[in-house]
Every structure is written in C-alpha cells, then in structure tokens.
C-alpha cells in the first residue's frame, strides 16, 4: 500500500491538491469543504460568480489567509505545517500585480531575488525575455501600462521556478488585446515551462479558451468539475444519440415551421420571427433529412448553424443564473 503511493507520487501525483479546504468568518462559511487537484502541466480554471469564494480560496492556497479546516498540499508539502517548503513551488499573482511604483522594473525584480537568494541574475534576464519586457526594465513601474504590469507580475511569479502558478482574476481591467496577450503568455508558459496553472475568473469565455478543466464553485462550495474539450474539433463528431440544437435561417418561416412539425425527425424548440430563424432539436444524422424536407417544400435555406451549449449557458445552469450571489 505504502509502496504503491510512493510509486504514484513520482508519476502523476497532483502538483496542487486542495483537501476539504474551509474558511469560516464569524458564523459564515466563505469556503466549505473544497477539494480538487491540479496535475502537472494542466491549466485549471476556478470559476464562480462574484462572491463565490474564489479569491479567498486562492489566498488560502498562498497562505495569505488562514484555513479554518482542511489543507492544501503543494507537491506533497502542506501549506499549513510546512509553509516554507510548500510556498517555494508556488508563483502567484493575486488580483492586479502591485509593485513599488518609484522603483524600476529591474529593482522590483531584484527585491524578490533578495528574498530567494538562489535566483540568479541570468534567471531574471531569462524571465524578462520570456514576458518581453527587456526594453522596460530600466523604466520606473509607475510609467508602466496595466498590461506591462501584468507581464512584470508574471515575471515576478516565475522568478523562483515554481511548479504551479496561481492567478486571481489576471485579466481584470485589461483591454481585449491585453486579455489575449495574457492568455497567450499563460498558454506558452504552461507548455514551455511545464508549469501547472490555476486561474480564477468569472469571465467564462476566457476560461473556455484558456483552461483544460474548470472547477465551478458557488457560495464557497464545489458545484462541478468539467473538462473542456479542445476547441472546434469536437463538433465534427458529436455523439450519435445525442440531440443537438441547430438553427435554420429560412425564408417563409411559417410554412417551414408547418412542414417540419409534420416531421418526427426534429422538434421545433423555438421560432424567431425577427431573424426568420427556427431552432430545432434533432440528431446529427437527421440534418440531411430536414434539409431535404425543406427543399421539397421549396423553402430557401440561408444558414444552418449548430447552437453549442456554451460554457456560459452551463455556468448559468450550474449556478442558478438569475440570483445575484
């Protein structure tokens, strides 16, 4: 038994493991019994509406906030009882990265170098190159844009060669170009440095594009853990039995609707007269049948699109949508 766990820990033990993490403030449980793992090289999203406990969780992982119950293991070291060893493997950006504005980027990084003296001068250069800030190192941080500060934040987090990067709302306040840049950096880092990333956000689209797995929490409790399958490749071969939602934009909407209602291949879910659209629920293999039927009625078809259940829809479903947390 013992032998087996040892074997496992070498191969695919989680880099970061939350075990029943709970935080109580007063009589309110901000986070309760939260457990999940992050494995090597994985990008995991921590998703939840505002006030769900994302920031508290992230701060507990970094040891900034004490836990009421549970523990966090970072490469097997407990953040509670062996903080120094555990934190060694963590790099973090918590909310907006804040630096000493009156110092240059270089001086700021040197501050962190002095706190972990094993970091070499070369490592600083390497990290600065990775985030593309070579030109800005001699400038004072107060002259940096938010995007540059984010990059310096990443550099700061990578300095001591951590195994896992934890990021709290890393794209808050960035413009679309900045968000995209950030995403590219993070993917790059996960791939090239083999670092696991745990990123919290309430921005669903972003999570969809960045993460391979999302952990959804609400009111401090785990709602669900979902894998996000890689991008568009998925739609090519959907499950044969599963009904999918497809939008048809057609001419002569009423007539089209009547035609399809007589057909038991598809179910009309909704009619959208403004756009002249029909939303159907049907199986993948039945799409040609529907097209044939419409064609036989000489209905013009302008557009056929699969309506994918987006992460957003699912998210609202999981978290009970309309209630403001």
């Amino acid at each position: 038994m013992n032998h087996r766990t040892n074997m496992q820990s070498d191969a695919d033990a989680p880099v970061l493991s939350l075990q029943g993490v709970s935080k109580r403030i007063g009589s309110k449980w901000i986070v309760s019994q939260l457990s999940f793992d992050v494995h090597k090289g994985e990008v995991v999203g921590l998703l939840g509406p505002n006030g769900a406990g994302k920031t508290t969780t992230i701060r507990m992982i970094a040891g900034l906030i004490g836990m009421t119950e549970g523990d966090v293991l970072v490469r097997g070291s407990s953040i509670r009882s062996d903080w120094k060893r555990a934190i060694r493997h963590i790099g973090a950006i918590i909310e907006n990265p804040e630096f000493y504005p009156y110092m240059t980027g270089c001086d700021n990084l040197k501050q962190y170098q002095r706190m972990n003296p094993w970091i070499s001068r070369e490592r600083i250069d390497e990290v600065v190159r990775l985030v593309g800030l070579e030109q800005a190192m001699k400038k004072k941080v107060k002259a940096y844009s938010l995007g540059m500060r984010q990059r310096l934040g990443i550099a700061q987090a990578l300095l001591h060669e951590p195994s896992v990067l934890i990021l709290d709302e890393p794209t808050n306040g960035l413009d679309p170009a900045g968000i995209r840049e950030m995403r590219d950096y993070l993917k790059n880092i996960a791939r090239e440095e083999g670092i696991s990333i745990l990123v919290s956000s309430h921005l669903l689209l972003e999570m969809e594009q960045l993460c391979s797995r999302v952990v959804v929490i609400q009111d401090g409790k785990l709602v669900t853990v979902r894998s996000i399958n890689g991008g568009s490749g998925e739609s090519e071969q959907p499950g044969q039995q599963e009904a999918m939602r497809v939008m048809f934009r057609v001419g002569r909407l009423e007539e089209a609707k009547r035609l399809l209602e007589g057909l038991d291949l598809a179910e009309v879910l909704a009619v959208n007269p403004e756009q002249s659209e029909l939303i159907l629920s049907l199986q993948y293999k039945d799409i040609p049948g529907v097209v044939e039927r419409l064609g036989s009625g000489r209905i013009p078809i302008y557009l056929i699109t699969e309506l994918k259940q987006s992460l957003e829809d699912e998210f609202l479903k999981w978290t009970g949508g309309n209630q403001i947390a």
Partner: peptide, 14 residues
C-alpha cells in the same frame, strides 16, 4: 496600501 504585501508574504520568508 499599495497591495505589495501580497507579493511580499508569498516569497517563502516568514
């Protein structure tokens, strides 16, 4: 005030 405390306390120094 500056928020730099977050970085300061996660560098493995007690």
């Amino acid at each position: 005030g500056q928020g730099t405390i977050k970085f300061l306390l996660i560098r493995g120094q007690s």
